[in-house]
Simulated scan of single mutants.
Amino acid sequence: MNISGAIFDLDGTLLDTTEIWEGVAARYITSLRKTPEPGLREKTKAMTLPMLCSYLKDEYRIATTESKIAKGFNTILREDYLESADIKQYVPILLEKFKQKGVAMCITTSTDKAIANEILVRLGIRDYFTFIMTCEEAGGDKESPKVFLDAHKKLGTPKDETIVVEDGLLAIRGAKEADFYVIAVADKNEEQNKAEIQELSDRYIESFEELL
């Protein structure tokens, strides 16, 4: 396959940050002296930030605005990102390889754009990506094909030469519904979905070394 465009997920794909996301909502609820429900991350993992804030406000009867909930959530997320977020092995080598081949690259993510931009700059890989598109900007979560279609339209590459690189089952479903060639990246937090991910995706890799 000739690749001229690549749409990358951030958390769990390029960055080893899935565990950070796993705990942020629970930490936020705990900070309010409330008890987070079991499986909170699983219930909310495909939500955009506005959807998550609406869910938390209703489910935990939080007496504040959704914008203030988002601010508190992002404060915790940013602290964790700056303290412990790291890049997955071989990612910088792959990005440089794609750059040398003229592949246009972008990010789609549920993470706040300012936080995503900051961590990519800190890790030294921001300049590889033409833009960052959030699910909030696209107006839907990653289970919907819209974020991938919007990102592809902005990227401007031929669809049959554009890949989506993702780790999550719900996002892979969305990308396949949008009819993209999907490369699935192994992530320990999606281990329970591995068989379905392997079946849905066009290629499954355990490490980015396989793409070098």
Rank of each mutant, 00 (worst) to 15 (best):
P50L: 00
L52E: 03
Y55T: 05
K57L: 01
D58V: 08
D58W: 02
D58T: 12
Y60R: 14
R61G: 07
R61D: 13
T65M: 03
E66L: 12
E66V: 15
S67W: 05
I69N: 02
A70G: 13
K71D: 11
F73D: 04
N74F: 04
I76T: 09
R78K: 15
R78D: 08
E79N: 08
E79M: 01
D80M: 14
E83M: 11
E83V: 12
S84C: 02
A85K: 03
A85S: 14
A85L: 00
Y90K: 14
Y90L: 02
Y90C: 02
V91S: 09
L94D: 09
E96C: 02
E96D: 11
E96M: 06
K97E: 11
F98R: 04
Q100E: 12
G102F: 08
G102C: 11
M105A: 12
M105R: 14
C106L: 01
I107Q: 09
T109K: 07
T109M: 03
T109W: 02
K113L: 00
I115S: 05
A116S: 15
I119S: 05
L120I: 05
V121N: 14
R122D: 12
R122A: 08
L123C: 08
L123T: 10
D127C: 00
F129D: 09
F129I: 02
F129Q: 10
T130H: 15
I132Y: 08
M133L: 13
C135K: 10
C135P: 00
C135E: 05
A138V: 03
A138K: 04
G140C: 15
D141C: 10
D141L: 00
K142L: 07
K142N: 04
E143T: 00
P145L: 01
P145I: 01
P145Q: 09
P145H: 13
K146P: 06
V147S: 14
L149C: 12
L149Q: 14
D150M: 08
H152S: 03
K153P: 09
K153G: 14
L155C: 09
L155G: 07
G156K: 13
T157C: 05
T157E: 09
T157A: 02
K159D: 13
E161F: 03
T162M: 11
I163W: 15
V165Q: 07
D167M: 08
L169H: 08
L170P: 05
A171M: 07
A171T: 01
I172P: 03
G174F: 07
G174T: 03
